[in-house]
């Protein structure tokens, strides 16, 4: 199984069971995960993004014997963000970057977003966009952050050649060209079941959002939806391989 959405380091507002990387690796291995794409919670609020990306690379190298694939972060509101992007690919060998537009203060409509996505696509990096980190109703009262509006995303993937995007932590995935999703935030007893009936099923990847969410949540949703056979295999790994390899929709 490939888990496309895990984090290392510390969520700023509480300690989480599993936020020690060795424990995280143990949990993932016990669950049958053979590859996990790991961003860093530090990327949400830290401004020294060079250090964040260095640390996530080191954490993934030291723990798990290759289980963890580091995913760097680029904040285009910081000076010289292109250097962070360059290092992600050239120095750390990353295949993907993970963006937090709502915590970093930019919108998909902004010109700098197109610049960043274009630069990532030119380098062959795929881009994960974290649509939301926490339910607005439970956020710290001094740091309230709305979800990322995604209306512009189809236009961006349509007009930026080779751009591949995976949206994380979004409750309502839809079928858009070259846009993939995880289903950790899909809710309702029929939530995943209904998605699997439509064309968006081909763009769904397993992503647990562990350790912020219980790892078992996304796994039990697949059981609840009755996913089996080829459908289950695509959710567990097949679609993620397509996304990573850039050979998909």
């Amino acid at each position: 199984m490939i888990d496309t959405n895990v984090y290392v380091s510390r969520w700023p507002f509480r300690r989480l069971p599993g936020d020690e990387t060795a424990v995280l690796v143990q949990k993932l291995r016990a669950a049958g995960v053979v590859e996990a794409w790991a961003g860093s919670f530090d990327a949400v609020l830290h401004r020294d993004m060079g250090a964040v990306n260095l640390r996530v690379t080191e954490e993934c190298r030291k723990n798990g014997n290759g289980l963890l694939k580091p995913v760097g972060c680029v904040n285009p509101m910081l000076p010289d963000w292109r250097e962070d992007l360059r290092r992600c690919q050239e120095r750390y060998g990353m295949k993907a970057i993970r963006l937090h537009p709502n915590y970093h203060g930019y919108r998909l409509e902004d010109a700098v977003t197109r610049e960043l996505l274009s630069a990532a696509a030119e380098r062959g990096l795929f881009v994960q966009i974290a649509a939301q980190m926490e339910d607005e109703r439970t956020q710290h009262s001094l740091l309230r952050v709305a979800p990322v509006p995604l209306q512009m995303l189809p236009e961006l993937t349509k007009t930026i050649q080779r751009l591949r995007v995976q949206v994380l932590n979004h409750p309502r995935p839809v079928s858009w060209e070259r846009v993939y999703w995880d289903f950790c935030a899909v809710e309702g007893v029929r939530g995943l079941t209904e998605l699997l009936k439509g064309s968006v099923a081909d763009s769904l990847c397993f992503g647990s959002y562990y350790p912020f969410f219980l790892w078992e949540s996304a796994a039990l949703k697949m059981k609840e939806a009755g996913a089996e056979g080829a459908v289950l295999e695509k959710l567990r790994a097949g679609t993620a391989r397509v996304l990573m390899g850039g050979t998909g929709r």
Binding site: P17, V186, E187, G188, V189, R190, G191, L192, F213, L214, W215, E216, S217, A219, L220, K221, M222, K223, E224
Partner: peptide, 18 residues
């Protein structure tokens, strides 16, 4: 709190806890 919530996501709170 199903059907608004997934039975799976809610069971995970206990079954996945330490």
């Amino acid at each position: 709190d199903a059907g608004g919530r997934s039975l799976g996501s809610q069971l995970a709170k206990v079954q996945g806890s330490t």
